[in-house]
Design a protein around this nucleic acid. Structure first.
Length: 580
RNA sequence: GCGGGCGUAGCUCAAUGGUAGAGCGCCGGCUUCCCAAGCCGGUGACGUGGGUUCGAUUCCCAUCGCCCGCUCCA
């Protein structure tokens, strides 16, 4: 074993090997594989679904069951669309993005530098070599030979707000022109850009059985039948055109933008989103939970479940996928106490993660800088895991002030506050004290937890085969409470009544609610190896001696050592190690 | 989304412009008293779609998926 004070050193190519093991043993399959797979979606198999459930159960037990002042909810994935306007997701999750075709960089169109007709448009490369590459790229793709001056390429100029052109040295008129949108790439100054792409990270769908596309098609057909689109839009939508997105689109005069705004407007009535996080339901149900439970701050509302985001990049197996699972808790406390509660939850959450890990030093805190925190947060820490590709997020613990309750109060018009009959308002000195609680949010990724505990558990060890060769033993050293199968019950050989004795032991485990498997196939060594890969902590083996004196062997996954015990003692050992 | 690489059985690989073989795995049988033993039998693949061709797994195009890097990540 490596230094317990240092992060785990992952075996070479561990992601590749782990992905293969996940598939062959039934932890995680690529989604819809027989149809060629679906990007970034994964299905949890017989072992994976047990592992994920065990992890989530451990979280729920630690966060909800054992705490008097924390309760759970299980909200609908589809919520009222106004929720996402209040939370800021509707606006914040959608930006117009553009790619520079020269430097291949992506940027936000609304933050790009603007230029005016007559302005020169020099393209600046980071070094002379790249300037030369870009010069050739532009010659090839656009048919003009720009003049290179060190890192700078010259010859382009803005002609009008809709057009830029190439001016040969000394020429007064452009020899070629291209359409223009008035801005250039912020990093290199290039005007060669892709179309603006509207990114919307929330999954959209429609609520209701009516075919929305049919409605949209009809409206668009009617509006575009007349020559004057703007007039047709104004005539049809009246007051809606006076302000908001329709007004802005009409003001721009761009047909595509107007039609886009019209489609948004028409689809508004049935448009809903799949939640991009589970957190908002806890704020939205704050009042109901408060009334039915009678809880007083400090208290928490917890929820586990699926969330959906159209991630720009999906990567690293199940680390970042569009459909993922979260374990979140919103902890409501008195304003002014958020600092101490943040410290408390940091410690609690780190204790939880490291409790199940072989390498506690693979977990660490990282405080967010002011620039990366949401504007309303007053402090934020990530719990990070040392993945094979480096440190990465596992859980965020944010101090969110009273922002969310304030936003939902504003948008819903419903007071979301706590009335403390015993305390006086610190500002006025009057009773009762009505306040919006401040929130500490430990938000963990359940899907990421699966990956992190698999990585923590994955080991390759040298072992000697019966033939005397050296081989690698692959073993998942999962914490017994997380392991999908707790014990395998194996007859040493498939005869002399051993299968019957083994099955009787299996029955006792299953009756006790312990997930166990019976296996009589192949040689005993093969069966041990298979269960090592599945992360099964114990193998109970029935052999010749069992028939004589009723004892069995109990094999430990991590050491492969065996103890001979009575059946009762073996079962008791399993039960007590599970803490059940 | 961009750039690069990849795609033959569950896995690792092989062969071929004339419809594909092996090892391991998996399933069944025999055997086996402790760490992937042995024997017999079986299962099983050219990612998808188009084009060229008498004929494509092989050549071309597109598409999908995976990996690496960049970018993005309220």
């Amino acid at each position: 074993m490596s230094d317990p004070a240092a992060p785990k050193v992952h075996p070479p190519d561990v992601m590749k090997k782990l992905t293969a093991l996940c598939k062959s043993r039934g932890f995680v399959f690529p989604s819809s594989e027989i149809y060629g797979g679906l990007k970034s979606a994964y299905d949890y198999g017989p072992l994976g679904s047990e592992l994920k459930r065990n992890i989530m159960n451990e979280w729920w037990r630690d966060m909800v069951t054992r705490r008097e002042n924390i309760v759970g909810i299980d909200a609908a994935i589809i919520m009222h669309p106004e929720v996402w306007r209040a939370s800021g997701h509707a606006a914040g999750f959608a930006d117009p993005l553009v790619d520079c075709k020269i430097s291949k960089e992506r940027f936000r169109a609304d933050k790009a530098p603007r230029v005016r007709p007559g302005d020169e448009l020099p393209i600046t490369a980071p070094d002379a070599a790249r300037a030369k590459d870009w010069q050739e790229l532009i010659a090839k793709d656009y048919g003009v030979q720009l003049v290179r001056d060190g890192c700078v390429l010259r010859g382009l100029r803005c002609v009008s707000p809709q057009e830029f052109g190439y001016f040969a040295p000394g020429a007064a008129a452009p020899s070629r022109t291209w359409p223009f949108r008035g801005y250039v790439s912020p990093s290199c100054g290039s005007p060669f850009l892709t179309e603006e792409k509207q990114f919307n990270l929330m999954f959209r769908t429609t609520l209701g059985p009516v075919d929305q596309l049919g409605d949209l098609a009809r409206v668009i057909a009617e509006l575009t039948a007349s020559g004057d689109l703007a007039a047709a839009v104004r005539a049809r939508f009246g007051k809606a055109c006076d302000s908001g997105p329709l007004a802005a689109a009409l003001a721009s005069g761009e047909r595509a933008r107007i039609l886009h705004a019209v489609m948004e407007h028409v689809s508004q009535t049935s448009l809903v989103y799949l939640r991009p996080e589970t957190a908002q339901a806890m704020f939205v149900q704050f009042k109901n939970v408060l009334e039915c439970t009678g809880l007083k701050p400090p208290f928490g509302i917890a929820q586990m479940g699926k969330s959906f985001r159209n991630e720009v990049t999906v990567e690293h197996f199940i680390f970042r996928s569009c459909e993922f699972e979260q374990m979140e808790m919103e902890f409501f406390c008195e304003p002014g106490t958020q600092g101490e509660w943040l410290a408390y939850w940091k410690a609690e959450r780190m204790r939880w993660w490291t409790r199940y890990a072989n390498y506690p030093a693979s977990f660490r805190f990282r405080q967010h800088g002011k620039d990366e925190m949401a504007f309303y947060a007053d402090d934020c820490y990530d719990i990070e895991y040392f993945y094979p590709w480096g440190w990465g997020e596992l859980e965020g613990i944010a101090s969110r002030t009273d922002y969310d309750l304030t936003q939902h109060e504003r948008h819903s018009g419903v007071a979301l506050q706590y009335v403390d009959q015993e305390k006086a308002d610190p500002r006025t000195g009057e009773k009762p004290w009505k306040y919006k609680p401040f929130v500490i949010e430990p938000a963990a990724g359940a899907t990421r937890a699966v990956l992190c505990f698999l990585l923590d558990a994955y080991h390759e060890e040298e072992r000697r085969t019966a033939a005397g060769d050296t081989e690698l033993r692959t073993v998942l050293k999962l914490h017994p409470r997380l392991a999908p199968i707790k014990a395998a019950v194996l007859p040493l050989v498939k005869k002399d009544g051993m299968p019957e004795r083994a099955r009787a032991i299996l029955e006792r485990l299953l009756d006790a609610g312990i997930n166990a498997k019976y296996d009589e196939k192949a040689s005993i060594g093969k069966r041990y190896a298979k269960h090592d890969e599945a992360g099964t902590p114990w193998c109970i083996t029935v052999d010749g001696q069992t028939l004589q004196d009723g004892t069995v062997t109990l094999r430990d996954r991590d050491t492969t050592a065996q103890r001979r015990l009575s059946v009762d003692d073996a079962l008791a050992a399993v039960r007590s190690a599970l803490g059940a």
